[in-house]
Simulated assay, not measured.
Amino acid sequence: MNTIEQIVKNESLDDIVTIFSLFKATPHLEMMIGQYKPESIRHGELQESYSRLFESGVLAKGENSLAVKGPNWKAPEFFKEIDTPDTP
């Protein structure tokens, strides 16, 4: 299982959107999530997640169909684990 597949299958949709919407436009994010968690697309959960994150200030509207970090943005735990290099 690749890293993206693990993240999509194991993390909350809000956490996935919080990170990936910063560098993937909605259609690309929809394809990525739909590949590993199609029920999120079919039941409208992805759009609900976007709306919730924009309304709560986690995300803000950016350029070129990308989101930017909003005033209430906070890195999800899975991202902190990936982003932090191991130190001996």
Results as ranks from 00 to 15, higher is better:
E55G: 10
N72T: 09
H28G: 11
P27H: 08
F79A: 14
P88M: 06
V68K: 14
G70W: 03
G70R: 01
F20H: 09
D15M: 08
P76S: 04
M31Q: 13
L53S: 08
E11K: 13
K37W: 07
L59H: 04
V8N: 02
W73D: 04
F79T: 07
S21Q: 03
I19W: 00
Y50W: 11
N64C: 07
E77S: 14
S65I: 10
L13A: 08
L46Q: 03
K37H: 05
E30S: 14
Q35W: 05
S56I: 09
K69I: 03
P71S: 10
T87D: 13
K9H: 05
A60R: 15
E77H: 15
K80Y: 06
S51R: 15
G62M: 10
F79V: 09
L22T: 01
T84V: 03
I16S: 03
L46D: 02
R52Q: 13
V17R: 03
N10A: 09
N10I: 05
Y36D: 00
K37C: 06
P38R: 02
A60I: 12
A75Q: 04
L53C: 07
M1F: 11
P71D: 09
V17K: 04
N72L: 07
Y50Q: 07
P76V: 04
R52M: 11
S49N: 12
E63R: 12
P71I: 11
K24E: 00
G70Q: 02
Y36N: 01
I19H: 00
F20M: 10
V58A: 06
N64V: 05
L46T: 03
P71K: 09
P27A: 08
E39R: 08
V58H: 06
T26G: 06
H28F: 05
S12T: 12
I19T: 03
S56T: 15
E81Y: 06
V58S: 04
E77G: 11
P38N: 01
N64R: 07
D15V: 10
E81K: 15
Q47H: 12
P88E: 11
K9C: 04
E45N: 14
D15S: 14
P27N: 11
I33L: 02
F78A: 10
K69L: 02
S40E: 12
E81A: 12
G57M: 07
V17W: 02
I41F: 08
S49I: 09
L29A: 09
T3H: 11
V8K: 00
S40N: 12
E30C: 13
A60L: 12
I7M: 04
I4G: 05
L13K: 05
K74D: 14
S51N: 15
P76H: 03
F20A: 05
L13H: 05
E55I: 12
L46F: 04
Y36M: 00
I82Q: 03
I4N: 07
D83T: 09
I33Y: 02
H28K: 13
F54M: 06
M1V: 11
K74Q: 10
L13E: 04
H28S: 08
L59Y: 04
E45T: 05
I7E: 02
R52D: 13
S12A: 06
I7H: 01
K61N: 11
F20Q: 04
I4L: 13
H43D: 14
G70C: 02
